[in-house]
Amino acid sequence: MHAVTADDYSAPADGPIAVLANPDAGRGVHRGLLPEVLDRLAAGGRPLQVLKAQTRTQAEAACHEAVAEGAAALVAVGGDGTVHLALQALAGTRTPFGAVPIGTGNDFAVETGSPVDPLAAVDAIAAALRQGRTRPLDLARITGPDGGSRWYGGVLAAGFDAIVNERANRMRWPRGPRRYDLAVLVELARLRPRHYTLRLDGVTHEVEAVLVAVGNCPSYGGGMLICPDADPTDGLLDVVVGGRYSRRTLVRELPKIYEGAHVDHPLARTYEARTVEIAGAEITTYADGERCLPLPITITAHPAALHLLLP
Rank of each mutant, 00 (worst) to 15 (best):
I102P: 04
A53D: 12
P311R: 02
G79I: 05
G98C: 10
V186W: 10
T95C: 15
I163D: 06
D288H: 07
D161I: 09
V263P: 07
P232L: 03
H2T: 13
A99Q: 08
V122H: 05
C63M: 05
A121F: 07
G81W: 11
I257L: 10
R248L: 14
A71V: 12
G159L: 07
T55I: 08
R199W: 03
H2Y: 07
V75M: 04
E253P: 07
T82E: 09
A304G: 14
G235V: 08
R150E: 07
G79D: 04
G81M: 11
G15S: 13
H2D: 12
Y271L: 11
E259M: 09
R31A: 15
A183Q: 09
D7T: 14
A209F: 05
G70Y: 06
G221A: 04
R192C: 00
F97K: 02
A301P: 07
A128S: 14
L267A: 13
A6Y: 00
R170L: 13
P101H: 00
A66S: 11
T57G: 15
Q131M: 11
I299Q: 00
A89P: 12
A213Y: 01
Y220I: 12
V50N: 09
A59R: 04
L250D: 06
P294K: 02
L254R: 10
L293N: 04
L119K: 03
D229M: 04
P101L: 01
Y180S: 01
G105D: 03
D39C: 04
V4M: 13
G235L: 13
A73L: 09
A230T: 05
R291N: 00
A168V: 13
Q58D: 14
A73M: 08
N22M: 11
R135F: 07
V241G: 01
L33N: 03
E187N: 11
V263D: 06
A213S: 14
I297R: 01
N165D: 10
A76F: 05
F108E: 00
D161N: 06
Y152A: 02
S114K: 05
S10K: 12
A124R: 15
T300A: 12
R172G: 12
E65C: 00
T93V: 09
T95P: 10
Y196H: 11
F108T: 00
R190Q: 14
E206S: 13
S246A: 11
A86H: 06
D161R: 01
V186K: 00
I278Y: 01
D138S: 11
V263H: 05
L211A: 00
A183D: 09
P12Y: 06
V203E: 15
T57I: 12
Y152Q: 05
L267I: 00
T55D: 09
R244S: 13
T249M: 13
G154V: 07
P115E: 04
A305D: 09
H307I: 03
